[in-house]
Amino acid sequence: MTLGAIKKEHLGQLVAAVGAHGGFYGPVLRDNDVCLDQVQPSDTLVLDYANFTLPPKGLFFPRSEVIATHGADGMVETPLPTGKAVLFGVRPCDAMSLTYLDKVFMEAQFADPYYRARRERTLTIALACRDPAATCFCTSVAGSPSGQGGADILAVDIGDALVLESATPAGEAFLAEYRKLLGRPSDNQVKARDAQVAQAVRKVSSIGSDGVTARLQASSESAAWEELAERCLGCGVCTFLCPTCHCFGLYDEEVGPQGRRVRAQDACVFPAFTLEASGHNPRTRQGLRMRHRVMHKFCYTAQSFGDIFCVGCGRCIVNCPANMDIRETLTEVPP
């Protein structure tokens, strides 16, 4: 574990120094919205945001990408990204989500080369939360507003400066490499950081989701799913904005003489997701689809990976046009 500190006004220098060797991705304003994007020389890093509307998964597993073109004799894969990249400013919940996606996309038997190339070239600096939102519940799902899971370095905002702490050897190496910009924090700065971390965690409310996996399992035949789904509009907001939802499709498109294979995010809440060529659909009703989505996150991944694939970021709650609230689903679905 190594510590570092940087005054906020010097962050631009860090961006420039890292940017000279590769990409620097961080929180910047785009169309009046704070987004994660590659930081351009004209950009200023934004540090006061609750979280981004879109989760960081898109940087590793884009909404859509051309993965290969059809050559005369087989497929030609799209060149994988090279060079180093730094991802700065993801919230600890979102950093945690990357460790879950790793379990799906980087498992030994069939690793996803596109996801892996992007992950392996990226150093992640998470930014601890000062003011968790009312919809945040990271502490109920194995997270914390200053959690280090999925981060190489955790940065804590202490007002005029950030205090950094390495969480992995890669993070340690980064702090050493940029030691000139990332000096050692003073004792007071470390104290300020510890106070910041302690106050933030108190702001996150617990949703009482203990034993949720077993409870949901017992509810799988409950009529409550259909009742809940009555209000659901059947859009994909909850899935596309979820940092851990990873359903996708592969599609062959004829574009130009060669044709190409596209991989695009998809959503299990759409009826067409499971529609078979014969017209048969194993999940015909919205209740079945909603149940599947919730069970996948809170039961199936717990069984197959040992982790609940929810980081408590609250995006699905904030953005649902029908005010579906996963916190209620988790605590109120009766068996």
């Binding site: 169309d31 509009l233 859009c235 994909g236 596309f240 959503a267």
Partner: peptide
């Protein structure tokens, strides 16, 4: 900016087609 979540379509009373042309 569209992420193709189709919330605009699903929230609209006029979009009741069994299969949307886009699907």
């Amino acid at each position: 900016k569209c992420i193709r979540c189709y919330a605009c379509r699903q929230a609209c009373p006029n979009c009741y087609c069994k299969t949307c042309f886009i699907d």
